[in-house]
């Protein structure tokens, strides 16, 4: 039923197709990409698009960057990192937010007040500056560096974005839980002797699933933008691992006449991915809950 309604949402279907292409292209980067993402070719720096590569090598379809690295290749690998980070953050945020929200709404009273005041504080804290501070300083813990190695940058960004991302889910699920817990089927399962954990996870959460899915979909785009912003400012994932954000940061140090081409593609990838996911989210909202239609 919901799927049929989603099928009719033309922009959402378009978004889904574009998203599928982006996901397949970045997952298949190892096979599709003609170069390695850190392969340097100092004779072809800032090459325009469709520049022939070295003899016997593939064409630089989208040109090269300041170190002669193939832009098309880097975009594919960057997509893998950006999508991977966004997916992990979205999953973690949803789990954490749903947990806090359902506990808060189901138990109510003092538990609810404490958890919701905590949520308020987290919402009031200035998130972007704190993300910058935390990701700059967590990098300096030597033990973390030994433990995670190259993945440290990725792990830190997933961690900090999760810390500052769960609040909207928690509020949403709390609202749902507050209204669901007075319904008759909850009383019924309680009188049948179901434990509180069972009521929360088998009855409350599944009934609140539709808005959770919509929120997660729309949040996914926000995470991609946040990760790119951090990497763009030099506080996120560091080169040589490419992300769309740090490719844009590299573009800033390019000579001004190359700025347009260097900034165009990574930004376009961010734009296209976020736009598609927003269309899908919008379509899902209409399909899953027609009452919310604006």
């Amino acid at each position: 039923m919901a799927w049929r309604r989603l099928r009719r949402h033309r922009l959402a279907m378009l978004g889904l197709v574009v998203l599928a292409v982006v996901v397949i292209a970045s997952l298949g980067a190892d096979w599709i990409a003609p170069y390695k993402y850190d392969e340097i070719d100092l004779r072809h720096t800032y090459a325009p698009f469709m520049t022939p590569g070295m003899p016997g090598r593939a064409t630089h379809y989208l040109g090269t960057d300041g170190l002669g690295r193939d832009v098309f290749t880097r975009l594919l690998y960057a997509g893998r990192v950006s999508l991977g980070v966004a997916l992990s953050v979205t999953i973690l945020v949803t789990i954490f937010g749903v947990f806090i929200g359902s506990v808060s709404g189901f138990f109510g009273g003092a538990v609810d007040s404490v958890l919701m005041r905590f949520t308020d504080v987290m919402l009031t804290l200035p998130d972007l500056p704190l993300l910058l501070i935390l990701s700059a300083s967590l990098r300096q813990f030597a033990q973390l560096q030994d433990l995670l190695g190259d993945l440290l940058g990725v792990a830190i960004i997933v961690f900090v974005l999760t810390i500052f991302g769960w609040m909207s889910d928690a509020r949403l699920v709390r609202g749902q839980a507050l209204s669901l817990r007075t319904r008759e089927f909850i009383d019924a399962s309680r009188s049948l002797g179901a434990s509180q954990a069972r009521i929360i996870f088998r009855h409350i959460v599944p009934n609140a699933l539709a808005p959770i899915i919509v929120n997660a979909t729309l949040g996914f785009g926000g995470v991609i933008i946040a990760e790119s912003a951090l990497s763009f400012l030099g506080f996120g994932i560091m080169p040589p691992i490419p992300t769309w954000g740090n490719m844009l940061n590299d573009a800033r140090s390019a000579p001004l006449q190359y700025l347009f081409v260097q900034a165009l593609w990574p930004g376009f990838c961010i734009f296209l991915t976020v736009l598609s996911i927003n269309f899908v989210g919008d379509g899902l909202r209409d399909a899953l809950d027609p009452r919310l239609k604006m």
Binding site: S228, F232, A251, R252, F260, A263, G267, F271, L275, F279
Partner: peptide, 26 residues
């Protein structure tokens, strides 16, 4: 509504660099 969707999906760090390269450099 579609343009509004576009605007919300374009991060300022991209539109900013594009604005510089088009209106200031180009």
């Amino acid at each position: 509504t579609t343009i509004a969707f576009f605007g919300q999906s374009m991060p300022t760090f991209w539109t900013g660099l594009m604005a510089i390269s088009i209106f200031a450099v180009g």
